[in-house]
Nucleic acid binder design. Sequence first.
DNA 1: CTGCCCATGTAAATCGTTACATGATTAC
DNA 2: GTAATCATGTAACGATTTACATGGGCAG
Lengths: 212, 212
Amino acid sequence: MSLRYALLGFLSTTPASGYTLGQKFADGAGAMWEALPSQIYPELRRLETLGWVAGKTAPGDKLNRRIYTVTPLGARELKKWVEAESNEHPPERDAERVRMLFLDRSSPDAIRRHLERHRDHYGKRLEVARRNCASIEDGTSERLRDRLANSEPGERAFVTRMKWFAMDGLVRRAEMEIKWAEDILRWLQSAKAQRPASKAAPKRRAPRRGAT
Amino acid sequence: MSLRYALLGFLSTTPASGYTLGQKFADGAGAMWEALPSQIYPELRRLETLGWVAGKTAPGDKLNRRIYTVTPLGARELKKWVEAESNEHPPERDAERVRMLFLDRSSPDAIRRHLERHRDHYGKRLEVARRNCASIEDGTSERLRDRLANSEPGERAFVTRMKWFAMDGLVRRAEMEIKWAEDILRWLQSAKAQRPASKAAPKRRAPRRGAT
DNA sequence: CTGCCCATGTAAATCGTTACATGATTAC
DNA sequence: GTAATCATGTAACGATTTACATGGGCAG
């Protein structure tokens, strides 16, 4: 049910086509809720029949682009959703950590490769999120500009800051995942030095990390 | 497809019934991949027809508990999965951050309530994860003991450490989410002091956080 | 005129949730 | 004996992925 509101939210800043939304979802400000065309297009049609958005194709457009705009009803429904008290967090489903849990019977090399992929994956995400944060800070974010254009002048600093915090969450997440992977990689490296083959190594207790 | 391997993984440590797995998934070491009974039971049956696990009900058991054990084939398939190179990370779907993104048109009070729920939610997760970490460290973790019982003596320190790292990932995630929420809450508090009603506030640039 | 990107979809299959059903066991 | 918990499921629905289809525009 969140795809619906993610679409609605992005359209509440700037009217857009399904294709454009799909692009934003993949990389830009929308690296928060990814979805495929086959899910986006039907959902936009459903939003239209609900009367939450209005879609229009420009008469001369050969590409048949359908541009959607949020209706007042849609804006109210979006607000209802973001403010809802019953925000049950989604169930935890952390495939990477599950893998790590059961990689203990694999070779240190397999574990290392896995962690390097993890680190690199979040490295890319970090880059995107940092870039987005920067463009919010220096005012080059198109989406933020569109958003501010629809805001009261007195609210603009507030809106800017909220956007920044949201994006900063993605930065922090990526930083955490990278550090987690690197800490384990470092330990694997030092453990390897101690037990070159695969056996031995005196039993040591897992120490706490630096800060809590 | 990950539920299948999560089940397989947990069974590779200790044979268990579907009900038991459901419990572990909800709180204990399994706060990594939650699933409901209606998904767990059919999946276990499918794993059985695949020959990856063997299920048996003890003759005298009035409760009709079906205890599943991983077969050698199942163990090989699990290993194949955890070591697979094509570990595409799942698409990002972060409903909380999407909400934050579009909460900028709501009252600071609504935002505050939202963030407090976020903080409290991860506070509970942090407690569970810390408890699990602690029980791995002090050797009171039953699941770890079962796991070590099936491991070579020389590998035990390594296995212990890997389990700890996996669980530590959940600790770090929860700590990060709590800090994120608290940082925004603190800012809301200070911003409120500056603009008590809802207007004004001199435009300020979003500053970088302490460390990168 | 061939291959690639833009743009919008449909159909089938799989994964996950919600609602419901059933019976036995344990604690009060 | 009644309520909570143990234990296993089925059916229907909703969300998501995979595979496929289609046609216009643009660069070589």
